[in-house]
Amino acid sequence: METIREIFDIGASFEAIIDWLREEAAWFFDFIAFVVEGLLDGVNWVFQFPPALLMILLFTLLAWKMASRGVAIFTVIGFSLILYMGYWSETMDTLSLVISAVFFALLIGIPLGIWASKSESAWRILHPVLDFMQTLPAFVYLIPAVLLFRLGPVPGVIATLIFSLPPVVRLTNLGIRQVPVEIIEACRAFGATSKQRLYKAELPVALPTIMAGVNQTIMLALSMVVISGMIGAGGLGNVVLKGITQLRIDMGFEGGISIVILAIFLDRVTQSLTHLGESKEGK
């Protein structure tokens, strides 16, 4: 056994691969880090710069417009509580991280979903990969992220985006495959190119389903917050982790509550996207 392990050392081989990637493809990862960091900083600035009270007002209006009066009332109370507990800045950090990660997840996931819906062989490959991704514990995603991007918010975004990718791919694929056959036939019968068919019929008709995927992706991204705190992503994850490691129950509890408030807000607001395009009069 000794000898085999000397010849083929799994850990060492992996290390070699990572080393090689870091050396040979450094420019590539630097570029990714640069883009991610740029977006993250921009988003963060948008949320951190205005006074908290103004942001609470905006969030409340958004909740009112997109969801309901009840959600709006919840929003104003919930975010005021966060402000009162003193975690405003951390909450906005987390929100920025989630939004950035989701942005990249959609940027990658929607085209993947479209591809999967169009090509049987693509779906045959993607399907098991997505299944596998969803069975892996979230911690696993930290490893490549840390190894390739070190510590900080950038690997946090990367790990979060990979973890939250599957639902939007799945539901984009599903939504497009579920477009009624007569609509597809109508497109073809009236002489649509495949691009026209996608943009004028398939994506709009699949939109509610895709939005359900977006909602799930956002919720998964939020569920990574505490875990990505472990690699120094900051925000509310940090607060909760500190609560756990230093046995500060008050901190852990308050951080937890803040995450829950943020989660409910994001869920309710993005759930209303699911009704998008179903009919303007339907509401």
């Binding site: 007569e182 609509i183 036939e185 009236f190 002489g191 179903e278």
Partner: peptide, 26 residues
């Protein structure tokens, strides 16, 4: 052009823009 048994209309478009569909494509 073709007329379908279950209509095959685009649910996200109003009547007139459904009617325009073919012309829009060309």
């Amino acid at each position: 052009s073709m007329v379908f048994q279950h209509f095959g209309l685009l649910p996200h478009r109003n009547v007139i823009s459904n009617i325009e569909f073919g012309l829009e494509l060309s």
